[in-house]
Write a protein that binds this DNA or RNA. Structure first.
Lengths: 155, 155
DNA sequence: CATGAGGGTTTGGTTTTCCTACCCACTGGC
DNA sequence: GCCAGTGGGTAGGAAAACCAAACCCTCATG
């Protein structure tokens, strides 16, 4: 009577994707980070159908990624602004953009010029020591009993 | 007779998500980067239904993110390994993991210990100058006529 | 020859998504 | 007042995606 359904791996990536992994969700966030905060403009720029956009915005507000801010009364209208948690996803978007630039686009539609003068190219570093993080320079520790990197293990 | 449907913003993030934005896709990639390369194990660890997994694997192979490598004849069996392009997505997963750790999980299921001794926490830097990338330290340049950061513009 | 593992495909039913249209509150022009 | 226009949604039905379970095929081993 045990183990009716094996659970998938406990994982923060999966948790994060349960919030931002739906279609259009990261594009909606992109718009708010670009400074586009209104329903109609977000719908136009992402291509999301209006009812889907309504659902995504509601979920993102509930998850604390966006907040709904009134910008006028009579009639009350709201705009959607990223919370600090939402802004923390900006690096994810930056890396996805760069990956798309490298592997899918002929000409990158958008380029950022850093204050140092170069076009922005991101590098992932260890916050503690400043070294670039590379494959094999860190060792994983699974904190969940019954699991290892390769899969479930016996107790 | 022009402009029947407005196109969404041309964007490499959207392009990237058209490849890796489907449900389970990034979890499948996670498994292959963890060293789990076989169909059954990937299905178990991600929770993806088998037919969906078949579709995702095929798409990822076509997109050049994974490759199908035979590991035995009689019967021929294949495993799925990340290509260089697939490994380039590892930072995206790392950032999603950290975001999930910070905002959704009580205890991070998985921690990486960097060679320097600290638990890994990623920092995004400018590859050219080494400075941490922060909000406002770069200016965008849209390369597509008819578009700006805030939306479509007149020609 | 039965059993079992690996790697799928098929079937059939349930959700999601998508699309078009409509609604409501208000404003500004006439 | 009447009309069109804007912002932010709902409603309803068709299309696509998803899911669980069952099935299939190839080979290996006992």
């Amino acid at each position: 009577m045990t183990a009716s359904k094996p659970q998938p791996r406990p994982c923060s990536i999966a948790d994060a994707l349960s919030v931002v992994g739906d279609k259009y969700t990261l594009l909606v966030l992109r718009e708010t980070l670009f400074g586009v905060h209104r329903f109609d403009a977000i719908a136009r720029n992402t291509g999301a159908p209006r009812d889907i956009l309504t659902a995504r915005l509601r979920k993102l507000v509930e998850a604390g990624v966006l907040e709904k801010v009134p910008y006028q009364d009579r009639p009350v209208r709201h705009e959607y602004r990223p919370t600090p948690a939402g802004r923390e996803l900006q690096p994810v978007l930056l890396l996805l953009k760069e990956w798309g630039d490298r592997h899918l686009a002929e000409t990158p539609p958008l380029v950022w010029e850093h204050d140092c003068g170069a076009d922005v190219e991101a590098q992932i570093c260890c916050r503690a020591c400043g070294e670039e993080l590379r494959r094999g320079s860190a060792t994983p520790h699974y904190q969940v009993p019954g699991w290892s990197l390769s899969g479930p293990v016996e107790a």
